Amino acid sequence: LGGVDDLEEYRIELNTDMRLDQRRYNVPISSEVAAIWVEDSELCKYFERSIVLFGNDNKRYSTQPYYGCYDPLSYPLFFPRGEIGWHPEIPKKGVSLNEMLQSRRSGRQSLGNSYNENNIYVVDMYIKVESSRLDYIKKHQEQIRADLYQGVVDSLQAGENRADEVGKRTIVPSSFIGGRRDRRRRYLDAMALVQKYGKPNIFLTMTCNPNWDEIISELEPGQTPRDRPDLIVRVFRAKLEDLKIQLFKRHIFGKVATYVYVVEFQKRGLPHAHFLLIMEGRYKLTCPEQYDCLISAELPDKSKYPELYKMVVKHMMHGPCGVLNPKNVCMQKGSWA
């Protein structure tokens, strides 16, 4: 609101609906932060948020979430001096990394231990970025040649049976990551690989351990791994790239003909990756003995492999719990068994 004269003549209107249970929007006590993505056009308008200013002449001034001045009003602790927040015109070049890091440090210091609010802010910024992409697609349907998909037959095949909506669908191109056409393109690419190279031989999963030394050593006093999603994904990606080197350059399982993989996030926010590996002819697994060389479902020999034994017992086994260990994680109040 910098530069606005006669502020005493303005009032702020909060975009709330008294018919909703406002207790749902209290400060969360859980460490898990999620967002609900509303796709229906009518629901989007119903839950649309903005900050509205009215002058004495009742002239309306709307501050939309993608305006730079919205974040200082919504997150005053992050912007104590009223700095401009996120907006679509943020430059991708010419921004000093040291300035960004210093800004993050000052923001965390001003928040103290309120890291849950930090996570909510990160989720909110991600929604703004994705929403701006979708808005661009919606307003530039001609550039993506949406007319090719607007026929009556296409609408009926998509399940649209309302006459007033036929031919009015917004087309999301395959370049939008996570969209229907993007998923279909990836699926067809994967099926083409199977058609050419044969069925996958190895299904490999890599999970993130929040207690990795690379994560724990970088935490600030009072922080836990869940307070630093940025640190978790950076460390996970570094280890994921190292795993790809082990698989595809050092051939720890043999030479890989082709592969596909996907990175997903668990409910607690921890990333994990799923690989499907199709091996070259002489390295394909065809008998139980070959599988036994790669997979073990028993405890390693403690005397021969003490480090491996320690890792398996720590990460792959549950318990004891109950009366034998009432302090186990699964026995704590509010935890999932």
Results as ranks from 00 to 15, higher is better:
9 E>P: 00
11 R>G: 14
12 I>S: 09
18 M>N: 06
18 M>K: 08
19 R>P: 02
23 R>S: 13
26 N>I: 13
28 P>A: 15
28 P>N: 11
41 S>Y: 13
42 E>Q: 04
47 F>N: 01
48 E>N: 08
52 V>K: 07
57 D>N: 13
58 N>F: 11
61 Y>L: 00
63 T>D: 06
66 Y>T: 12
66 Y>L: 12
67 Y>P: 06
68 G>T: 12
71 D>C: 10
75 Y>Q: 02
77 L>F: 06
79 F>Q: 09
81 R>E: 05
82 G>F: 01
82 G>E: 03
82 G>C: 00
83 E>M: 09
84 I>V: 13
86 W>D: 01
87 H>E: 08
88 P>E: 04
94 G>Y: 11
95 V>E: 02
97 L>G: 04
103 S>T: 14
108 R>N: 05
109 Q>I: 08
111 L>E: 07
118 N>T: 09
122 V>D: 06
124 D>A: 12
133 R>W: 07
133 R>M: 08
134 L>S: 01
139 K>V: 04
143 Q>H: 06
145 R>P: 05
145 R>Q: 09
150 Q>R: 12
150 Q>K: 13
151 G>M: 03
154 D>E: 05
155 S>P: 06
156 L>E: 00
158 A>K: 08
158 A>P: 05
158 A>N: 03
159 G>S: 05
161 N>T: 14
165 E>T: 13
173 P>H: 12
177 I>T: 10
179 G>K: 00
187 Y>A: 02
188 L>P: 07
193 L>P: 06
206 M>T: 05
207 T>A: 08
211 N>D: 13
211 N>R: 06
211 N>V: 06
213 D>G: 05
216 I>G: 05
216 I>V: 12
222 G>H: 01
228 R>Q: 14
230 D>T: 07
235 V>S: 01
238 A>Q: 15
239 K>Q: 03
240 L>E: 07
240 L>F: 11
242 D>M: 13
247 L>D: 04
248 F>K: 11
248 F>C: 08
254 G>S: 09
256 V>W: 04
261 Y>M: 07
263 V>K: 05
263 V>Y: 10
266 Q>D: 04
266 Q>S: 07
267 K>E: 10
268 R>K: 09
271 P>N: 11
272 H>F: 03
281 G>C: 11
293 C>A: 15
297 A>R: 15
303 S>D: 13
307 E>H: 12
308 L>K: 11
313 V>S: 14
316 M>K: 10
319 G>V: 06
322 G>P: 07
324 L>V: 07
325 N>R: 15
330 C>I: 15
